[in-house]
Design a protein around this nucleic acid. Structure first.
Lengths: 230, 230
DNA sequence: ATGATGACCGTCCGTTCGGTCAGTAATCAA
DNA sequence: TTGATTACTGACCGAACGGACGGTCATCAT
């Protein structure tokens, strides 16, 4: 409330860096310590997914970071750029997985399964960014750009499905485009409920045991390729 | 732009009712003709799903309806109530499907498949409402209420999966909760891409032939229960 | 000591937001 | 013609929005 509050916090405290739970810890960089673009981006993505992009004001973000609103604009040119950076990171991961799969030998069905597993790995590794990406619906220019890249990814997976059907490895009585959408619909839905294990053994209700959500990928592949029925 | 625009549009025109593409057509009701709650709700849901709930202003909605912002508040008490009505309609459909399935005889796996098919039917029949429901993430009180009902539905499906596993009809090597989430993750994802056929035969890229997205439900059940592999 | 660097503050702006209110306009039944 | 019913207008309010601005402050290499 008082105008001196922010200043007094900045000047007080025994340690040099800001207290809080934030992670502005950087390694011996010049200049005044504090947040950098990365720490701001991660907090922004967290808030965007928690409360929605539009519902999150820059002042909300500033409060969460423990700095003022104007300080954010020292690191980023606009609110939309935060969204662009976040979706870009998720898409980069997905596309690098697609590129790796594309350069792979073997049957299409095996490469498709590999793409599913790698996509799950990206989902788990970059969960906040992927979650945000999957909630984007094309309101702003940045969102439309992200949607276009997502469509390109979908088309790649669809072409893989078509190849596998042509190889006689996948059932031909489902439209390949629909197959691809349902397959990655499962993967995408996991962004809304999968949470990495934080501690002990494989407890109930969780998701993936092993590193990087291996159980999640395993479940999706079993369900999709072999079917649920015994 | 000009302040007289709204008035001139309302006063002009040959017909008594509002022109536009809106559907205020009602059947011989008393009072001044125009929009009723239903027509406003449908337009609101359309805009909410197109541009997002938070990104859609009440003035956006009023423009789309061809009336003023304050006229909306004659039909509805708040913006949030529109959201409550919309999600409520979708959930009512889903829960009536669940209730019908619950009172059904037969093996759990068959009732589960029936629930999937009926859920797809609800999805298709109330596509705008269900789509909006699935995008809700718990920011407001109305959204949290919708989320709670969604969780109850998920728990019902999970219990059905557990029964089917106990019956020996579903593979036991996937956690039942995860199975349920993946299964309905496919159904939910369809809300983002399924569009009912508007015209001729089963063209490519579309979704469901037959009435009510039968092909969609068929594809999901084949994929989930029998698997994609030949 | 000094200057470059990077992080940050406080204040203000034009605009838009959800919502209110008193009054008006069109339709039906009596 | 009157009155009940329903739909609607236009002016307005307080608050919050994204963003811009000039100035300040701590830290580094020199």
């Amino acid at each position: 409330m008082s105008p001196a509050q922010g200043r007094s916090r900045a000047g007080a405290g025994p340690g040099p860096g800001p207290g809080r739970g934030g992670r502005p810890g950087r390694g011996g960089r010049p200049g005044r310590p504090g947040h950098d673009l990365e720490s701001i981006l991660r907090t922004a993505v967290r808030l965007f997914t928690e409360r929605g992009y539009d519902a999150t004001s820059m002042e909300d973000l500033s409060r969460a970071l423990g700095i003022t609103k104007s300080a954010i604009y020292h690191h980023v040119s606009s609110k939309e750029e935060l969204l662009r950076l976040a979706t870009g990171r998720a898409l980069d991961g997905l596309f690098s997985a697609a590129a790796a799969v594309e350069a792979l030998p073997g049957r299409a069905i095996d490469r498709l399964e590999r793409l599913v597993r790698d996509s799950v790995a990206v989902l788990v590794a970059e969960l906040p960014f992927v979650t945000l990406l999957l909630r984007v619906h094309g309101n702003t220019a940045a969102e439309r750009e992200a949607l276009a890249r997502r469509r390109a990814f979908d088309q790649f997976t669809a072409s893989l499905v078509k190849q596998a059907v042509a190889d006689g490895d996948l059932r031909p009585d489902i439209d390949p485009v629909m197959t691809a959408k349902l397959l990655f619909g499962m993967v995408s839905s996991a962004a809304e409920w999968y949470r990495p294990e934080r501690g002990g053994g494989s407890g109930p209700g969780g998701g993936g045991s092993g590193p990087g959500g291996g159980a999640l990928a395993e479940a999706i592949c079993k369900l999709a390729f072999e079917g649920l029925r015994t």
